[in-house]
Design a binder for these strands. Sequence first.
DNA 1: ATGCGATATATTGCATACTATAGTTTGTTG
DNA 2: CAACAAACTATAGTATGCAATATATCGCAT
Lengths: 221, 221
Amino acid sequence: MPVPQNFKAPARMSAKEKAFDQIQRWIIDGTLQPGEKLLESELSESLGVSRTPIREAFQLLEVKGLVATYPGKETKVTEVEKGDIFKLYSTLAALHASAAEVAAELIRPEQIQHLIDLNTEFERAVISDQPYLAMETDEEFHHAIVEFANNPYTVSFSESLQVHIRRFKYVFLQQPIDSTQASVDEHFAIIRAFQIRDAAAAHEAMKQNLIRPMRELEHLI
Amino acid sequence: MPVPQNFKAPARMSAKEKAFDQIQRWIIDGTLQPGEKLLESELSESLGVSRTPIREAFQLLEVKGLVATYPGKETKVTEVEKGDIFKLYSTLAALHASAAEVAAELIRPEQIQHLIDLNTEFERAVISDQPYLAMETDEEFHHAIVEFANNPYTVSFSESLQVHIRRFKYVFLQQPIDSTQASVDEHFAIIRAFQIRDAAAAHEAMKQNLIRPMRELEHLI
DNA sequence: ATGCGATATATTGCATACTATAGTTTGTTG
DNA sequence: CAACAAACTATAGTATGCAATATATCGCAT
């Protein structure tokens, strides 16, 4: 039987997942402001589900650090501070640099090619001034490398950090810009390190690629 | 009114927290074996609470990577593989080395003294052959440094990794040993780096202190 | 005997009802 | 009027019941 090749899992999302995704999006984009109090009843009404999946979503958001629960009392959206930018980026840099080191030894030619394609796409987005697309492609590039390193813990932690970084940008910049040509070049430096299987160089290039935008953000704010 | 000085918060734990703690302990110590199927009804009975807090505990455990949920079907304890040891320790090394770097610049004299005290305690536990106490003191030492680095993301990730490492030791060794005199010396090397505020040296010493036991574990298995 | 379909069973997912608790208001007493 | 306490309100925490879904069982036809 001929089955569509690019068959996407129908994404039959549970109410809990829908609630989680929506609330997380609202927190990231600032619809739900830092410090804002969240009521189970209120959200259950506006999302059209009962309190149960909302509660479950809250608990997952708490683990992710997007809300704080004061037991028996309330749950609020966590605050964002300028000082977080260093904490977020330096942690991400440590993880991604380590992942790049490992990936340098595991990566296969077609995976390198995929990175080249992604970075070309990224460059187009930068040149044509599409900051949101650029940010997404940049994240994809990094995500791919972390995947190649084949370490689920790093994948999970780094996704969590990306979420906070996105929120940070929304809160303080109202836009996702920080992708520049420098970033494109740094990506190519990482790719070159992979091509010659130089783990130390990959580590350093990756670190650069995260520390530089951090410094720029710090100055911008 | 005279109130006890060392008054501990009464630890009025919710049913959810009790369930989470107990199930996590059972998974770490192997009471609940990798691959084992978990039934909400069964656990709710044995813990004397309803299914709701059990469900909530399951979801938190899933985020932590201790159980895997197959929606609508079942939830099982995740598997542990020998290859995980590298993934766990290399990630922890990256995080702690980065934390040590930051801590080297922030640390205060009394905090350094606290580390010296902890490491002395650790050395006593190693010498008197109390592996469990040694493991705990070792973890405290590392935890203190991560705290000094003042980065909640690193704290959270590293606690999560510690849990997995503990489980790994239980599953493959049935005991928590891997603390040696070498570890004590490495700790002192970290402390010396702090005393002279040498971030790079702290980074390297910390990395050593995690990579060495990883290699030893790899050989042991 | 095997493969398919229908029915039964087990288990999760969600909704609702109930309980406990923190915070607020109000009343009472010195 | 002030201070305390009791009742009231709002909200989170827990239990239970119902619905949806996946798996297993059984029967039937080929």
